[in-house]
């Protein structure tokens, strides 16, 4: 007896694909936002349990792998500590000068940021849109678009999706990210773009501007939502021909985003 087409495997596949394609292009975020919020909220204790376990496993693995290095590392840390003590004295003076200049230029001091610390409880390294899930959300006063940093004002990313108790943070290395930046040493301005989750590219730098390898890149005050002066990275390589309209540079990141455990969300980004 011939089987009905509706009970055939291919019919099921076609039907599912049609509905899925419809959902992708229709993208009913308002409806599924609630569903997503419910499931993420309901499984939050389990997510926290797994992330804490992962942290312990990771720390244990790191401790095991670093046993041989500890003695060598200790010696270099003592040397570095002495060097930093000397440097610290010098920086204290620079800090005072910096505060005065910030006041004169009406720029918000870094310590005046209203920061919300958050623990990373989830990560997606599989797709091109790498992101992290943090354990703070709408209930903690977080909003979509807020800037995310790590210690000493290193820019990490932005809050892309917000839920009641969690938030999705997209790294600056994402292709969708465009950040207005400038170099510290030469003041060259441009835009930093993500390089498919792997690194950063500084683009749209005028040929008249000077780019130097090793120059630090910070956020400029053109962006309304990202505070000025956050460290983005360092110029690693300059790649532009003389006849190009703009200069381009490969930017190295100051921290390994994949090793982060805690981040800070800036609640008062508008420094104007």
């Amino acid at each position: 007896m011939p089987t009905k087409f509706t009970s055939k495997k291919i019919f099921k596949v076609i039907m599912v694909c049609l509905i899925a394609t419809l959902l992708i292009f229709w993208n009913p975020n308002n409806f599924f936002g609630g569903v997503r919020n419910f499931f993420i909220g309901a499984t939050l204790p389990v997510q926290k349990f797994f992330s804490t376990s992962a942290e312990k496993v990771y720390s244990f693995g790191e401790a095991i792998s670093s046993i041989g290095k500890i003695k060598k590392e200790n010696k270099s840390l003592i040397e570095e500590n002495l060097r930093l003590k000397a440097q610290n004295v010098k920086f204290e003076d620079v800090l005072k000068e910096n505060e005065n200049l910030r006041n004169q230029l009406n720029i918000l001091s870094r310590k005046e940021f209203n920061l919300e610390s958050a623990r990373i409880i989830g990560k997606d390294i599989y797709n091109n849109n790498s992101w992290i899930l943090i354990d703070k959300g709408r209930k903690n006063g977080l909003e979509k678009g807020m800037t995310v940093i790590v210690a000493d004002g290193i820019l990490v990313g932005k809050v892309e999706e917000i839920f009641d108790s969690t938030a999705k943070v997209v790294f600056i290395t994402e292709k969708s990210m465009n950040i207005n930046v400038e170099t510290v040493e030469t003041g060259a301005v441009g835009i930093v773009k993500g390089d498919y989750g792997l690194g950063l590219i500084m683009d749209l730098v005028l040929q008249t501007d000077v780019l130097k390898v090793g120059d630090k890149i910070i956020t400029s005050d053109i962006s309304q939502d990202i505070p000025r002066g956050l460290l983005v990275g360092e110029i690693k390589e300059i790649s532009s021909a003389g006849n190009d309209l703009f200069q381009r540079a490969v930017v190295s990141l100051p921290v390994d985003f994949f090793k982060l455990r805690f981040v800070f969300v800036i609640k008062n980004a508008n420094n104007q």
Partner: peptide
């Protein structure tokens, strides 16, 4: 299909993208 749907939910992606991929891949 459910596995794909919940992947879309938890991975905060467009609903349907993993459903489509998982169904085609399973087939």
């Amino acid at each position: 299909v459910l596995l794909g749907f919940f992947n879309d939910i938890f991975l905060i992606e467009k609903i349907g993208s993993n459903v489509l991929f998982f169904t085609l891949f399973a087939y």
